[in-house]
Amino acid sequence: MPDWTPVALLRDLPPLVVMPVTVDGVDLALWRSASGRIAAWADRCPHRGMRLSHGFVRGEALSCIYHGWSYAQSGQCQRIPAHPDLEPPEAIRVPVHHATEAGGVIWVALDTVTTAPPALAGVQPLRSVTLDARFDPASAGLTESGGAWRGTLGGVAVAVLVQPLPDNRCALHVLAESKASPTDLVAASRGIETLRRQAEGVSA
């Protein structure tokens, strides 16, 4: 099992946004603070179990949508709106995992990290898509090189990162060659749609 799993493109997580992601079958709330810090937490509020990915970001804290409990970067609960004078006990803490950004991709590691995520050079982020099917990069004409699957989509050179998901699904995070123009990128995006239809067996 690799240390790091690609979970999203940085452009899809601007400051003040929280989104759900899944790594090794574990549901996480991936969020970015006002100052741009990225965090990946257990997607469960310690109070009532609500998904924190339904919550909202204010400043450097993530708040639960249910009762507004807010959590600092450490995962420690810092405020309970119904008890404004209470200093929340240290035991109220969300499990925090490793999250980092490299080359426009957000990577998450649940446990100990021994390596850095691959730094992909010469590419720009394109888009992430989810496939309701397994994905075999080799049968799609891609070859592994430098930590990503390389090939062409819509006539554009691409690097594809595969994120396994539960229930035989997966997400693909696709980057395109740096010199690709907006028109090229649109063609590559349509190429991704074709690739997904083929992988899901919708059309040959």
Binding site: L9, D12, V17, M19, R127, S128, V129, T130
Partner: peptide
């Protein structure tokens, strides 16, 4: 609606 990052930002 989890698999759609562009829809997420657009609805925001």
């Amino acid at each position: 609606v989890d698999p759609y990052p562009a829809i997420r930002l657009w609805t925001r």
